[in-house]
Design a protein around this nucleic acid. Structure first.
Length: 762
DNA sequence: ATCAAGGCTTTTTTT
DNA sequence: AAGCCTTGAT
C-alpha cells in the first residue's frame, strides 16, 4: 500500500520528491507538517537510512510529534534514529562531541537569557559604565543580533557602520562589552543561545574533517519554518547541504514573525540563488479553517507590501462570522471570554482542549486565569514564567551546572551563598577582582586561594573551602553516579530541600513540590534513554537548557483550555480561538509603529493568530486596561477594521457618540485630574443620584490638600458587584489610595478607590 | 553579613 | 503589579 495516498496531489508531489533541492511554500493550514512527515517516511521507505536524515524544526515539541507520526508510518525503532530537533538542540549535541576542537569543555554550560544579561550587567559595572545608559537587556540584544549575523567581536569593532550606530545611540562602548562578554563566556566554559549557532558555524568553517563528516552523515536535510531562520542558521544549513544538495525547506513568508530575533525572509530569496535548479512546490489549499476565516485572513495579509503572492483557499464550509466583542476593562474581558467558552462548550459539546485564548503579551494572561479559575474551568498557560525559570529550579540546576562545569560563573554566583553560608558580596567581590586580575575564573581562585592575594578572614576562608570541597565531591560523582541519584544527593546535601521543606507558606510548599517535580523529571529522563546508554546529570543539563514548557506537557494537560502568546501558537490549531487584547499600542504593539516593516510583522502575527482557528474565531478589545499598575484607556486595534467587513460581526460595537468615550491619548494619571474627562466609565445604572460615588470625586478630596478623606475606616459602603460592606482599612494616598473592605457576601477585598465603583452609605 | 523597607523600572514576542 | 536594587538598621 502506498501511504502517500493520504495526501492531495500537490502534497504528494512534494512528499515524493527525493533528490535535489526543493522548497515548499505552504499557506497556513495547508498541511506542510504532513508533507514533511510523509516525505521523511517516504525517504525511509525508499531505503534512506534514518541516520542520514537531519530534520530541523522550530520547537522540540514539533520534533517530538513529527517523530511519533513518522514512527507510526515506518516503525518507531527506525524513526528514533533520525536527527530531529531545533537548531539549538541538534547543534548543541554536535558541539558537545566536538567541543575540545574549539577550546570548550564537553560539559560546557548553556547560558540562558538571564545568565547572559546578568553577566553583561557585571561587565558594565566593572567597566565603570552607567547601566542606566547601557541597559543589559538592550546591550544583549545588540550582541545577539551581531552573533546571529555572524559578526564576531573584532568584526563588530572593525565595522564603521555598526560602531557608528552605537555612537549615535550614545552607547559607543558596546563593542568592548561584546568582546569582554565573549571572553568571559569562554573562560566560564559557557555558550549562550546564539553561540550554539555561531560556534557551529565556526566548527564547520575551521574543521574540514568535521564538516566532511556531517556532510556525509546528513545526506538529506529538511528545515521547517524556514521563514523564521536567521543568517547563522541559514549558513549552517548551506554548509551541510553543500555536497549532496538534498535540501528541503518548508515555510510561509506570511507567517514570518521572528525578525526580532534575527529571522530573515531573505533566506528564501537566498535559497533561490544558492540552488538555482531547485524545485518549488506551492500548497495553497487550506484544510484547517472555514471559508470565512480563510478569507478574512487573506484580506488581512493582502495589506502587506512585502509578500510572496499566493492564493490560499479552502473547500470547507463557510462557517460563522468572526465575532468582535468590546469589553469595558481587562477583567471584564476575562469574564466575557470565559463565559463564552463555557456557553460554547455547553452548546456544541466540544472539549476544553478545543479552545485557545491567544494574546500578544504574556502579561495579559492574568485576567483570563482569574475568571477561568473562578468558573472552575481547567486551563494551561504556556510560556511566561516557565517551570525552568522558577527561582528554586534555577537554584538547584545551578548546582548541577556548577558540578558539571565549576568554571560556570553565573551558576557559582547564584549558589555560593544559597542556602546562606555566610559568604556575602564583599567576599564575592574580592574573589571576582582577583579572578579578573589574574585572568582566571572565580572557581580557580576559590579552589586554590593561596595562589592569590585575598584580603579575607580565616573564618571566611574555611567557609569558602567547605563550599569548594562540596562541589568537588559532586563533580567527582558525575560520571559514576546515575543522574537521579546525584541530583537528589545535591538537593538534600546542599540543604535546599530542608530549607524549602521548612517553609510552610503556600508558596514555599509549591516550591518544594517543584523541586520534587524536577527530580522526578530527571528520573524520567534517565529511564527514557536508549538501552545501554547511561545518562549522567551532565547529559540532562544539555537538554534542560533548551527545554520549554511545551515540552513539559503532561497527560492531564491534554484536555485543558490553552492560554498562550500568538508567537507560541505558531504551528498549532484549535477549533475555537479567542484573540484578545486587540487594541492599538498593544496589538499592534506600540514599539512596532515606527516602521512599515515592523507593522507588517505585527500584521503577519495577526494573520497567524486568525489562521489557528478551525471553526470559530472571536476577537476582543477593551476600553480600559491596567498596565504597570496604571489604568490606561485604549482604542480598538486597526487590525479589526482591516478585516474585510463581510466576514465580521460586531457584537456590541460602541456607537459613535459625541460624548466622552472617544477620548484619545488620555493615558496618564494626571489626566484624571482634568475636570472635563467625565471618568470614562459609564455610570452604572441603578445607582441613585443622591448617593455620592467616590470614584466621581477623587481629585477634589485629596489633591487639593488637607481636606479630609471622604472615606473612613468603619464606613458602610456599597459596591456594584460585591454588594454592601464595611471599610476595615485604608492605605496609601491619592491617586493610589486603597481600601480594604469586608463584604459579607464575598469576603474581604482590597479596592483601589480611584476605580472602584464604591458608594458611601452612611 | 543579613534583613526589611522603600524606591524604581519594566523588550511584546523566544531558542 | 511585581521583581530588583539600594539603603539603612542590626
Amino acid at each position: 500500500m502506498n501511504f502517500l495516498d493520504d495526501l492531495n496531489e500537490k502534497q504528494q508531489l512534494a512528499a515524493a520528491h527525493i533528490n535535489g533541492p526543493m522548497m515548499v511554500i505552504a499557506g497556513a493550514g495547508s498541511g506542510k507538517t504532513r508533507v514533511l512527515t510523509y516525505r521523511i517516511a517516504h525517504l525511509m521507505r525508499q531505503g534512506v537510512d534514518p541516520f542520514n536524515i537531519l530534520a530541523l524544526t522550530f520547537t522540540n515539541k514539533a520534533a517530538k510529534e513529527m517523530k511519533e507520526r513518522i514512527g507510526s508510518l515506518v516503525g518507531m525503532g527506525e524513526a528514533k534514529n533520525i536527527s530531529m530537533g531545533t537548531f539549538h538542540s541538534v547543534f548543541a549535541r554536535i558541539l558537545r562531541h566536538n567541543s575540545e576542537k574549539i577550546g570548550y569543555p564537553s560539559n560546557f554550560t548553556i547560558y540562558d537569557t538571564q545568565d547572559s544579561r546578568s553577566l553583561i550587567k557585571s561587565i558594565i559595572k566593572e567597566m565603570g559604565l552607567d547601566d542606566k545608559i547601557y541597559k543589559p537587556g538592550s546591550v544583549h540584544g545588540r550582541i545577539s543580533s551581531a552573533k546571529n549575523n555572524l559578526i564576531s567581536p573584532s568584526a563588530y569593532e572593525a565595522s564603521a557602520e555598526i560602531v557608528g550606530e552605537d555612537r549615535m545611540a550614545r552607547k559607543p562602548e558596546i563593542y568592548r562589552i561584546y568582546k569582554l562578554y565573549n571572553e568571559r563566556c569562554f573562560k566560564s566554559g559557557a555558550m549562550d543561545f546564539d553561540d550554539l549557532l555561531f560556534k557551529t558555524n565556526e566548527l564547520l568553517r575551521d574543521f574540514p574533517d568535521v564538516l566532511h563528516y556531517y556532510q556525509q552523515k546528513f545526506q538529506y536535510i529538511l528545515v521547517d519554518e524556514y521563514q523564521d531562520t536567521n543568517y547563522s542558521q541559514y549558513l549552517i544549513v548551506k554548509r551541510l547541504a553543500a555536497v549532496n544538495e538534498n535540501i528541503c525547506v518548508v515555510g510561509d513568508d506570511a507567517q514570518s514573525i521572528y525578525s526580532f530575533r534575527g529571522a530573515n525572509i531573505e533566506n528564501i530569496l537566498n535559497f533561490k540563488k544558492d540552488y538555482p535548479d531547485f524545485q518549488l512546490y506551492k500548497l495553497e489549499q487550506n484544510y484547517r479553517s472555514t471559508k470565512n476565516i480563510v478569507e478574512a485572513a487573506n484580506s488581512i495579509i493582502a495589506r502587506n507590501v512585502d509578500q510572496i503572492k499566493k492564493e490560499v483557499w479552502t473547500s470547507n464550509d463557510e462557517g460563522g462570522h468572526i465575532t468582535v466583542v468590546r469589553c469595558a476593562t481587562d477583567n471584564e474581558e476575562g469574564r466575557v471570554i470565559t463565559n463564552k467558552i463555557y456557553d460554547l462548550k455547553q452548546s456544541t459539546g466540544c472539549e476544553y482542549k478545543d479552545f485557545a485564548i491567544l494574546y500578544r503579551t504574556n502579561a495579559q494572561s492574568r485576567s483570563f486565569e482569574e475568571s477561568l479559575r473562578k468558573l472552575g474551568l481547567p486551563y494551561k498557560i504556556y510560556g511566561g514564567l516557565s517551570f525552568y525559570q522558577r527561582k528554586e529550579i534555577k537554584d538547584l540546576i545551578a548546582y548541577f551546572r556548577l558540578s558539571a562545569n565549576p568554571n560556570d560563573e553565573e551558576a557559582l554566583k547564584r549558589v555560593i551563598n544559597y542556602p546562606r553560608r555566610g559568604i556575602g558580596n564583599t567576599t564575592l567581590d574580592a574573589v571576582s577582582v582577583a579572578a579578573l586580575q589574574y585572568n582566571t575564573s572565580m572557581w580557580n581562585v576559590l579552589s586554590d586561594p593561596h595562589q592569590f592575594p585575598l584580603n579575607i578572614s580565616s573564618g571566611i576562608r574555611t567557609k569558602l573551602s567547605n563550599f569548594v570541597t562540596k562541589i568537588q565531591g559532586y563533580n567527582a560523582k558525575l560520571e559514576l553516579v546515575p543522574a537521579y541519584d546525584l541530583a537528589s544527593d545535591i538537593a538534600t546535601s546542599t540543604g535546599i530541600m530542608r530549607e524549602l521543606y521548612e517553609d510552610k507558606t503556600p508558596e514555599g510548599v509549591g516550591r518544594y513540590e517543584n523541586i520534587q517535580e524536577l527530580l522526578a523529571g530527571i528520573k524520567e529522563f534517565s529511564v527514557s534513554q536508549p538501552e545501554g546508554t547511561k545518562a549522567t546529570l551532565a547529559d540532562f543539563l544539555i537538554d534542560v537548557a533548551l527545554l520549554t514548557d511545551a515540552d513539559q506537557e503532561t497527560e492531564e494537560d491534554l484536555n485543558k483550555i490553552t492560554l498562550m502568546t500568538i508567537h507560541a501558537s505558531k504551528g498549532l490549531e484549535f477549533p475555537h480561538v479567542f484573540i484578545v487584547g486587540l487594541e492599538e499600542n498593544l496589538f499592534p504593539s506600540q514599539l512596532s509603529l515606527t516602521s512599515r516593516t515592523e507593522l507588517e510583522e505585527e500584521r503577519r502575527l495577526f494573520y497567524v493568530a486568525l489562521t489557528r482557528a478551525q471553526k470559530s474565531c472571536t476577537l476582543s478589545y477593551v476600553n480600559t486596561r491596567f498596565k504597570w499598575g496604571q489604568l490606561i484607556t485604549a482604542e480598538p486595534s486597526r487590525f479589526i477594521d482591516e478585516i474585510d467587513s463581510r466576514f465580521v460581526h460586531f457584537e456590541n460595537k460602541l456607537e459613535k457618540s459625541g460624548g466622552g468615550v472617544s477620548l484619545k491619548g488620555f493615558t496618564r494619571p494626571s489626566d484624571f485630574s482634568k475636570p472635563t474627562t467625565s471618568r470614562m466609565q459609564e455610570r452604572p445604572s441603578g445607582v441613585p443620584k443622591n448617593l455620592k460615588k467616590l470614584s466621581d470625586t477623587p481629585t477634589s478630596s485629596s489633591s487639593s490638600g488637607g481636606t479630609t478623606q471622604p472615606l473612613k475606616v468603619g464606613y458602610n459602603v456599597e459596591h456594584d458587584r460585591f454588594g454592601k460592606g464595611k471599610v476595615t482599612g485604608l492605605e496609601g494616598s491619592f491617586p493610589n489610595q486603597k481600601a480594604t473592605v469586608f463584604f459579607p457576601r464575598v469576603g474581604q477585598k482590597v479596592l483601589i478607590l480611584k476605580f472602584a465603583k464604591l458608594t458611601v452609605l452612611d
